[in-house]
Simulated assay, not measured.
Amino acid sequence: MTPPQKASYYTPRGGLPPQTALLTDRAVVTEAYTVIPRGVLSDIVTSVFPEWTRTRGWILNRPVAGGSTTFFQAIMEVQPGGGADRPEPQPEVEGFLFVTSGALSVVADGHAQTLTEGGFAYLPAGTAWSARNDADADATFVWIRKRYQPVDGHAPSVRFGNERDIEPSAMPGTDGKWRTTRMLDPQDLAYDMHVNVVTFEPGATIPFAETHVMEHGLLMLEGKAVYHLNGDWVEVQEGDYLSLRAFCPQACYAGGPSNFRYLLYKDVNRQILL
């Protein structure tokens, strides 16, 4: 039997395309979805944040008219010695961190944890937390932020872990070739978002056009696939990003030769307010 592959996590390194490069790329913004190819993540599109030192970020999603409205998502790169004592400027906003390279030291509600590749932290709204890079190499992580929607009788707590330590759940009828690693309990009403790592083995597929109310942020961690989005075929590879609006029809084929894996955000578990 072939031993399981070690999970990999694509991490952007910036730079700038040469003057000889063609302008044509796969970036597109439509009424239903946005595609940000990894080649877009150059030095000149980074942002700096007033709460952070020795840090830059590629903002992938923010609430915007005509786009996804429930979340912020960015790839953050922290140099050695950098970080933030109070990273979150809004007490009503929850956060989720997922490390793709290096090591990030996080302190939340008095609990300290060093997150390495695949490590994550869920940080409830109102949590006092900090993050620093105490290592000798850059630390890169995905930061998801959402305004929390509280529900009486259900309060989330700080959660640390590593996706490599969680047993994935196979999707029914797929013989385990399509599986989901759930980092937050999908049945716990304390959470109003899910963040999962989804894995497809080569040739596996979402065999129907999912059409649902949940918005999605998908960061491709490994491999390649072809997505069917609102009637369009879109080829993606590790490092690409998709932002999908509510009710955007979506399906995919995993292309191989390696597994196709992505980090998935979606909003869940709340009544629609009218």
Rank of each mutant, 00 (worst) to 15 (best):
Q79A: 15
R261I: 07
Y262Q: 00
R270K: 09
A65T: 15
V40C: 07
T11A: 05
C248A: 13
H111G: 09
P4H: 11
W143L: 15
T30Q: 06
P156E: 05
V64P: 05
T30D: 10
T180C: 12
L115E: 03
R270Y: 00
V107Y: 06
R56H: 14
A190S: 14
A137R: 14
G118Q: 00
L244V: 12
E235M: 03
P150Q: 07
Y122I: 04
G231C: 00
A131S: 03
E163L: 08
I272P: 03
Y253T: 04
P37G: 03
Q113Y: 09
R179I: 07
R164E: 12
G126M: 12
G173R: 05
N259C: 06
A155V: 15
A209C: 00
R164D: 11
G203N: 07
V29P: 02
S258H: 10
V93L: 11
L229E: 10
W233S: 13
H154M: 07
N162D: 05
D267M: 08
P186E: 07
E163K: 09
M1D: 14
E31Q: 15
D43A: 08
V234A: 03
V234R: 02
G161Q: 11
V93H: 08
Y33V: 08
Q149T: 12
E51D: 11
F247M: 02
P37F: 00
Y265W: 14
Y265D: 04
P150S: 10
V107M: 11
G217C: 12
F247I: 00
G83C: 04
R26L: 06
I272Y: 01
G239V: 04
F98G: 03
V45G: 04
S258L: 06
T53P: 13
W143R: 15
M183I: 05
H216E: 12
A254T: 01
T100E: 07
G57W: 08
Y265M: 06
E31W: 13
L23A: 11
I166P: 06
F200I: 06
Q250V: 13
T180P: 03
L189P: 02
M214T: 10
N259R: 06
I44G: 04
E201R: 07
P257V: 01
N133W: 03
T174K: 01
G223L: 05
L41D: 02
L115Y: 03
F247E: 05
V213R: 10
P257K: 00
S68Q: 14
S243T: 11
T24I: 11
T24M: 11
P172H: 01
E92M: 08
S42Q: 11
N269R: 13
G239A: 02
P37K: 02
D165W: 00
D138C: 10
Y241W: 09
R38L: 00
V107Q: 12
T30F: 10
E51Q: 14
N259D: 14
F49Y: 07
P63S: 10
T55E: 04
L16V: 12
Y191D: 05
D134N: 08
